[in-house]
Write a protein that binds this DNA or RNA. Structure first.
Lengths: 227, 227
DNA sequence: AAACAAATAATAGTAATACTATCTTTGTAG
DNA sequence: CTACAAAGATAGTATTACTATTATTTGTTT
């Protein structure tokens, strides 16, 4: 079975809905490729226009800036995370097992990925690891936060936070731990790959497996420690 | 007593040593102010030149790019962290107390700060919170890492890792936990201030105190959990 | 089939950014 | 007093992040 996911993305992120046309879809799809290839700092609409055989002006009719395109892409990803989590969790009754599954999804140690055909999830994961914090670590964070563009991220973290509370109702930091696990998943993947002294991936396991093991340890030692 | 700290910063980060002249010192000092004020994305050498009544060309004689200046500033900060940690820890015998003190230093809940007069540590802390991950989350990370510009960061994390091992010699993730604590200190401070739903600062305590409490909980529940 | 609007392509242009180059002035060391 | 290095003043280039204008294509209605 192939699944095509469509999420309602905050309309303030685009000028014209990229899902509404072929060029629009190309902008997002090849945008992901290009950001991945050159990094967000070197990514420009001009280069993207060349890649999709279109023009800068056309891309600007969809997105006001490359920054908004990045947040659009991340919004899609955060919606995907929450959707896949909720779908996969239905089968499970035990909240500990639920949290374990969420950590698998966060670290991309999860195979439902292969059935989803919208965007290349591997490339998307690469962007999320290196670029996602650039979405909020900006001077304008409070203004853009008012536009609700971080709602999907908050929503996902609060969903994870509720499952953490199911595991231990007395736990004092459900939202903080949820966001810490997500951020640490990105950081440790990046460190394991590029700055290995900031990680402890000694055995020759994959970066993903290493991160999954570490997150499991971190999450459950925190949750199960008596408050 | 007033303390003036001088660290040996990696020479590949500058073209001319900014410590060697008054303009050089101004570039770093007012650079910290300006990055703080406008954010790294909006920070330019032209604006900095105006602020110090000098010219772009002069700044370029010290630093090849604004990016190198940022890493220079972060290097100073990482050296400061390790230095202050090592100094303060001499008095303590208990390794648990040592780690607690390190968490105070990381979160800036520590008063030796006031005696140090080189750079404004509060402003520096602000930059570290919002901009430090931009130093390594770039496409060029592997090349610049070869220039050893991340050595002070790695050195500090490994120092903290060793103390973690003193607390629990069986602990499997000393370096990962050290880097996680540092990054989480920044993330949670930022979230508590700007995206509070990603944190759990319910009571009306300061961001710093909240982060300190959370880090203490996170660190010791991880370290004391049986491997 | 003609008429229409909407989207896109093609092109040009602007202000700001990230530099590089050159030439002059200034301050200090021998 | 000379020399020489640092800094100032000025100019210039390529790229970036846009905005604007016009022309062409495309799909839809009548």
């Amino acid at each position: 079975m192939q699944i095509l996911l469509k999420f309602k993305i905050n309309e303030s992120l685009f000028l014209r809905d990229p899902e509404s046309s072929e060029v629009g879809k190309l902008i997002v799809e090849k945008g992901i490729d290009l950001i991945r290839e050159v990094g967000f700092e070197h990514f420009t609409f001009k280069k993207l226009a060349e890649k999709i055989n279109s023009t800068e002006a056309t891309i600007y009719r969809y997105f006001a800036s490359k920054y908004r395109l990045l947040i659009y892409i991340l919004n899609w990803y955060w919606c995907y995370l929450e959707f896949v989590s909720k779908m996969s969790l239905q089968e499970l009754g035990d909240s500990t097992q639920k949290l374990k599954l969420i950590l698998e999804i966060i670290t991309h140690n999860f195979d439902s990925d292969s059935q989803i055909v919208d965007y290349d999830l591997e490339k998307l994961h690469g962007i999320v690891i290196s670029e996602s914090s650039k979405a909020y670590l900006v001077k304008e964070v409070d203004e853009i936060n008012q536009e609700l563009v971080f709602s999907p991220l908050k929503s996902f973290c609060q969903f994870v936070g509720q499952i953490i509370l199911q595991v231990n109702p007395k736990f004092a930091y459900p939202n903080a731990l949820a966001s810490t696990l997500l951020e640490t998943a990105h950081d440790q993947h990046f460190f394991s790959e590029h700055l290995p002294k900031l990680a402890d991936n000694k055995s020759k396991i994959t970066h993903k497996k290493y991160v999954l093991n570490y997150l499991n340890f971190l999450a459950f030692s925190a949750i199960n420690s008596y408050q």
